[in-house]
Simulated assay, not measured.
Amino acid sequence: MAQRACFCLVLLACVNGDGQLVRLVSPLDNGVGRLEVYYDGQWGTVCDDDFDNAEAIIVCRQLGRYHSGFKPKAIPTFGYGTGKIWLDDVRCNGSEVMLSSCTHRPWGAHDCSHDEDVGIICDERSISMKLTPGYSSGLLQVHHSGSWGTVCDDGFGQVEASVVCRALGYQ
């Protein structure tokens, strides 16, 4: 019996329960970048005041990019954002599943400028699947045997999409 080639592509869109999204913005999709959050219909940055590795771990978990081994790190900046600065004085106790669950000033209240935008380094070695080009939607790719490949949509339904979204840190 001849094997059939599969040229199907899977596109997904994953959203957190409260619609709040996080992303790392950088020229590369490697788990490193300026932290941005989506609130009130627009992306904005997070101030580095009180932002430390505990908060970085929450973000990396939310992105599905944290596993044992390398600990995520907050870094001074990864380029300057534009537009809104949504969060300041973020403090997490470590049990939160989303950054928005941590204590912080009211959305949009801050005493920062974009030269204080927080950057994060997640464990890029832990990435086994990703959505490209986006953070919460795009082409599903998996990492296997040292290279990235796509997933065929044969038999791929809502149950499989839910599993992928949960693995990437979404509900």
Rank of each mutant, 00 (worst) to 15 (best):
Y80M: 15
C47N: 06
D48F: 05
G81H: 10
V90A: 06
I57W: 01
T45G: 08
R105L: 13
G83E: 10
I85P: 00
A109N: 14
A109Q: 15
D115V: 15
D111T: 14
R125I: 12
G108R: 15
G94Q: 11
C102S: 05
Q62C: 05
H104C: 08
G44M: 08
L131A: 03
E96Q: 11
A54I: 15
Q42A: 14
L35Y: 07
S128G: 12
G94V: 12
Q62L: 09
Y38Q: 02
P72Q: 01
G69D: 09
M98E: 13
D88G: 06
G64D: 03
K130W: 04
Y38S: 01
D40E: 15
E124W: 11
Y39M: 09
C102T: 12
D115K: 14
G41E: 14
M129N: 05
R105K: 14
H67K: 14
G134K: 00
C60Y: 07
G119N: 03
G119L: 03
E116G: 07
C92H: 05
Y39K: 09
C47A: 12
P72N: 02
H114P: 10
D48S: 11
C47H: 08
L131P: 02
L99C: 03
H104N: 08
D117H: 09
V32G: 00
A74R: 10
Y66L: 03
Q62I: 07
G33Y: 06
H114E: 10
D111E: 13
S113K: 11
E116V: 10
E96F: 05
D52G: 10
S95D: 12
V97A: 06
F51H: 04
P133D: 07
G33D: 01
Y135C: 00
I85H: 03
L35E: 04
S113M: 10
I57P: 00
D48T: 07
R105A: 10
H104I: 10
